[in-house]
Nucleic acid binder design. Structure first.
Lengths: 100, 100
DNA sequence: TTTATACATGAAAATATCATCATATAAGCA
DNA sequence: TGCTTATATGATGATATTTTCATGTATAAA
């Protein structure tokens, strides 16, 4: 007989987090915020060479899903990682130099 | 000036892997194969209480994307993890009991 | 008090993913 | 040979995600 490790709820939560993160642009944003602590929207757009509206959508989405937080200062909105833990994922992936 | 850590190619690769894995059923399969080494399709279907055709699609997809491998023995096809590294991801997520 | 800047929003179009069904193939067995 | 079991396949429809575009709002500055 087989043991079944993770329960359904946990699997769904994990899949949800992974899905949120499983996108090149969003990974790039997380990566940037891992190095830079706080960044404004326009700054991110410029570095990633991506449209403002699209970046905004991604940022808001990740904020909504609990991965980022934001703080307003005048005209600017600064985004940062909410849980540093997310970067563990990135590290995993970076180290994971397997033939995938 | 800002440093940009991971290159585009690596980000796309990482997102690709994450996307492949970011699904409750596929996470469950990986989890099962982490415990059980090798498993037949029907067996997986029964444990996950899921239709054969759907599980087959998932399995083949994950194999295609380099996460699983398979080996045929008579009527059965046994699937197993190709790179044990994938489970590091899962462990990350499991440990990552943050408020996400 | 107009104008410019930084960001958000929402709808629509483009695209990708998932689940289902019906059927195919391949191996083993009566 | 014909039947059964285990798995694969492929088309289709249902859904979800991503991108784009056009526009809205808030703040600052002239």
């Amino acid at each position: 007989m087989v043991t079944y490790a993770i329960n359904k709820e946990k699997l769904e939560k994990a899949a949800y987090i992974l899905k949120t993160v499983a996108h090149p642009t969003r990974l790039a944003i997380i990566d940037l915020l891992n190095i830079n602590e706080k960044m404004g929207v326009t700054e991110i757009c410029e570095i990633l060479n991506c449209e403002q509206s699209l970046i905004s959508h991604h940022l808001i989405n990740m904020k909504l899903r609990g991965i980022l937080k934001s703080e307003k200062d005048g005209l600017n909105v600064y985004y940062s990682l909410k849980e540093k833990d997310v970067t563990k994922l990135i590290e995993c992936i970076e180290n994971c130099d397997c033939n995938m």
